[in-house]
């Protein structure tokens, strides 16, 4: 009998490996190899079309360290990510708590908040490009209509606010996903905990801070990890609405590396930037995941 169990387990083990081949092959071809190629290209000077590639060692990385646009892109990416993480998490949590009940109207709101997530990035970029238009845009027209002309802006060209205006669009799109995650987290909190808290005399705020928040810690960390990665990888909304301009005021790492590769044919330099971006995102993700493990 024991021998039979062993055989069955062995067969299961082998079958598991066989099933793993396909996803591992796909992962290797579409993730590992492009990244390995990027790493290799980052040591070359190559225009992306000429057959000749010139080995330049760490020159691309040295150039990057001395490039003021790279540092501006880093700063903008950090501003964008912090704005995204803070607002998407807080607004997502707030909305999730408000709609956490199962009724038709709550389901309607859940769908409503999630709706922007299903729109394509280009569509979102175009819609918000029109809304932000300084002459004909809905936002400035609305501010004028309610007598707040002094708050009207050239939202996508004022270098002090453009990066936050772009991050807000990302928040608008992503907040629905946070709501879904938080609602799922709220559904897993045992009702008995709230009952006990009420018996102990806890009001709604105390129930939220002493029961809901601690029980949502792992969900919150998942939301934080996802939004942080999303923030650092941001490309589409920025590219569609400003292209990184004007004069690099909304340049983020992804638009910077795209331009270097495709506008200036600096594929080696662009690869060096992408490798750096990969390292930054990996470090932040590992740190956040460790925090997640510790706290849970």
């Amino acid at each position: 009998m024991e021998e039979m169990d062993k055989r069955i387990n062995k067969r299961r083990f082998n079958t598991t490996y066989l099933f793993l081949i396909a996803p591992l092959a796909i992962y290797t071809v579409f993730f590992v190899m492009p990244n390995v190629n990027s790493l290799i290209f980052s040591f070359y000077k190559w225009d992306g079309i000429a057959p000749a590639k010139v080995f330049v060692g760490f020159d691309n990385y040295i150039k990057m360290a001395n490039d003021p646009v790279f540092w501006k892109a880093i700063l903008n990416t950090v501003k964008y990510t912090v704005t995204l993480v803070v607002f998407q998490t807080l607004i997502g949590l707030l909305l999730a708590v408000l709609i956490f009940k199962t009724s038709k109207i709550h389901n309607f709101f859940r769908t409503l908040y999630f709706l922007p997530s299903v729109l394509s990035a280009v569509t979102v970029g175009l819609i918000w490009g029109f809304i932000y238009d300084p002459n004909m845009g809905a936002l400035n027209k609305f501010l004028e209509a309610i007598g707040l002309e002094n708050l009207t802006h050239s939202w996508l060209s004022d270098e002090k606010i453009v990066i936050y205006a772009l991050a807000f669009v990302h928040v608008w799109v992503g907040v629905g996903q946070s709501v879904v995650l938080f609602v799922a987290g709220l559904q897993n909190i045992p009702y008995e905990l709230y009952e006990s808290a009420r018996i102990d005399g806890a009001g709604p705020w105390k129930q939220f801070t002493r029961v809901t928040m601690p029980m949502l810690r792992s969900t919150t960390l998942i939301v934080l990890v996802l939004t942080t990665i999303g923030g650092f990888k941001c490309f589409d909304y920025v590219f569609v609405m400003t292209g990184g301009g004007a004069t690099h005021s909304s340049e983020v790492l992804s638009t910077f590396l795209y331009k270097e590769a495709y506008a200036y044919s600096e594929f080696g330099y662009s690869a060096a930037i992408s490798v750096t971006l990969l390292i930054i995102v990996s470090i932040i993700t590992v740190v956040q995941m460790r925090l997640l493990r510790k706290k849970t």
């Binding site: 062995k10 083990f13 082998n14 490996y17 066989l18 793993l20 081949i21 591992l24 092959a25 290797t28 071809v29 190899m33 390995v36 190629n37 290799i40 070359y44 190559w46 057959p51 000749a52 590639k53 080995f55």
Partner: peptide, 30 residues
């Protein structure tokens, strides 16, 4: 034994994929 064969098979397939996809990327082998 079978486990070793499975792992060997996986590695072979991955190596083949890697070689097939990266041959043209080698700057020395234009």
């Amino acid at each position: 034994m079978k486990k070793a064969i499975c792992i060997l098979l996986m590695l072979t397939i991955l190596c083949m994929l890697f070689v097939a996809c990266s041959a043209s990327d080698n700057p020395e082998e234009e």
